[in-house]
Amino acid sequence: MARFILRRLLVIVPMLLVVVSLTWGLIRVAPGNFYSGEKKLPAAIEKNIREKYGLDKPWYVQYGRMLANTARGDFGESLKYPGTTVNSILATTLPVSATLGILAYLLALVVGITAGTIAALKQNSRVDYASMAAAMLGISMPNFVLGPTLVLLFALRWYWLPPARWDGFSLHLILPVLTLSAVYMAYIARLTRSGMLEVLRSNYIRTARAKGLTERDVVVRHAVRGGLLPVVSFSGPALAFLISGTVVVERIFALPGLGNYFINANLNRDEPLIIGIVAFMSIAVLLFNLLVDVAYAFFDPRIRY
């Protein structure tokens, strides 16, 4: 297992190289540039800008500089926000996105797994139908609809909660976390239910039952572990995405997270910022997927690496 983990950690380096190179290539061929505006700039000013940011240099010089920056973990200055470094943007936005993402996912896990397990145990009962209908509601109600609806009720009708903005650990977090977790809650509930149904009918559970274990022990000690495999598979990418920011919720609730920056960086062709966020995101994806693969072995002892 240790060797497996080490190997996977080493893979991060070539992966990162591939990801940033591809991204860099995409930015280069994308139409438009970071300095264009409603009024076209005079040629001389355009030339000044290109010289200032080294865009007049041959492509391999620019590519080399980008790779060197990535290797050093210092992505340089944003093009859109002169004087602001990409690292400082990551440092200020990451805590916000991470807080939001982790809280939302924890909530989703707790509610989703509980609801999914109960639904599976009482398949085709009212509890099952009710929780699955609620889950389906969560999925078919996009967060850009759910968020404003919650705001309208809790912030604008009853004035119970603030409608938007970031204020650390406070009441401000409630609505965005709820909005963000709804869809994941629903996904997890449904994946848990189907995974559990599969497992509950499998032989080893029958054996466990036959051995005379209590239903409680069967479920908690045996079924849950196997039944959660789909949830585990889903969790790696989901967490990586959540932590690197979710633009819709950030915009609705005016939160200073990474997602908003990332979308705007793409729209603004802000190369250093895109590269920085992508590098961070790919590391997050790799680490979380590694965690998932390690968790597989825990959840299902039959899986060996």
């Binding site: 309208l152 603030p162 938007a164 903005r165 609705i252």
Partner: peptide, 18 residues
Amino acid sequence: FYPIEDLTTMMNLYKSGE
């Protein structure tokens, strides 16, 4: 100054008196 881009969010913050 609050840098906000979403129109509905602005209306919400305004209406709630923030």
